[in-house]
Write a protein that binds this DNA or RNA. Sequence first.
DNA 1: CCTATAATTCAATAACTCTTGAATAATTGG
DNA 2: CCAATTATTCAAGAGTTATTGAATTATAGG
Lengths: 120, 120
Amino acid sequence: MNEKQALGAFAALSQETRLRIVRLLVTTGPQGLAAGAIGEAMDGAASSRMSFHLSHLEQAGLVESRREGRSIIYSAALPALAGLVEFLMRDCCQGHPEVCSPAVAALSSCCEPAKGAVHV
Amino acid sequence: MNEKQALGAFAALSQETRLRIVRLLVTTGPQGLAAGAIGEAMDGAASSRMSFHLSHLEQAGLVESRREGRSIIYSAALPALAGLVEFLMRDCCQGHPEVCSPAVAALSSCCEPAKGAVHV
DNA sequence: CCTATAATTCAATAACTCTTGAATAATTGG
DNA sequence: CCAATTATTCAAGAGTTATTGAATTATAGG
């Protein structure tokens, strides 16, 4: 992740419809969702509008697409999201981990719903 | 962190000068930097331009300010950054931690420069 | 092959954002 | 109190971005 990519990613995430799409696809995982299904989830937004935002997100590297029959399936690009987070917080501690550990805890909690659960 | 706040934060981060300011302040920590010093670090940008971007960042909740003599000192709002990351990645695993653990690892690494080092 | 379905592309318009330079406000030292 | 320093506010103009509706492309089924 470099500055240019990060700027593109943040710009993509700064639009309401696109942020909702990414958050929806983050919960959907690698399986993804068809463009039409995403449009329905976005208050039935016009398909041209969906295409605009989906291609914007793909251009930014935050989602990936594949064709399945007549549908195009979109899914979140988790490694890109991880890279973005890392880029933003790089060198946040300067030897003082307590300064940025809240961010680590916030993110870790997303993967550890049960106390003392799986650790990868 | 709600959707509105997240949109504001991402919009703030999607501008080159502002992203650089945040990354600079993230490395500076709670100590922060005076507005003028930040301006110098940004290729000597005009002060009105700095004020515009700094107040944009403060409005978005990503930085905080305090007066010290004639200077206004800006510092990163680490908890807000942590909240933003958590909001973006919320419910990313759905019981499958391996899906989002790269993001956790990326962020954790920022706080653990030395292998087996401090764990807070 | 023809129709229906699923999605993208395009052009025009409306809305928003950034930069610049000049003016203003707050603080300190002499 | 006056001048210098530090920073913010404001208005205008240039550039960028999102929405809409119509036209186009790709695939599947009868």
